[in-house]
């Protein structure tokens, strides 16, 4: 048991990286669901993206190191995330001009 723990602590493997991805994803999700400021929500979304990226790269590195598919995929996601961030920030800017506020919980007119 001790040996196993020591081994796990000294050798960084796939499960460590996946654990970190999961933590990162959870933090991002928490941010998306709780932050009132729209910019903070956008930043939390970036965390979600990066959690996914870490997973992809980790799987690629540890399971099919020769193929590089995970890495390529991650690069694509980074590019798309940049575009998404640009659109998101533009929307937030519009929201701010319109309402003089970036708090998402205040923009709740679209209901019954």
């Amino acid at each position: 048991m001790t040996d196993f723990l020591l081994y796990k602590l000294s050798h960084v493997g796939l499960d460590h990286v996946l654990l970190m991805g999961a933590l990162l994803f959870s933090i991002g999700l928490y941010g998306v669901l709780t932050r009132r400021n729209a910019i903070a929500v956008l930043m939390a979304v970036e965390l979600l993206f990066n959690a996914v990226n870490i997973n992809l790269v980790a799987f690629s590195r540890y399971i099919t190191p020769s193929l590089m598919t995970g890495q390529i995929f991650a690069l694509f996601i980074i590019a798309v995330a940049a575009a998404e961030a640009a659109v998101g920030i533009a929307l937030i800017l519009c929201l701010y001009r319109h309402r003089r506020s970036v708090y998402v919980d205040e923009a709740d007119e679209l209901q019954w």
Partner: peptide
Amino acid sequence: LRFFQTGKVQTYATYML
């Protein structure tokens, strides 16, 4: 059901989750 439609985007995200 109308009480579930709050207009708040984060509520909807929670439903999705």
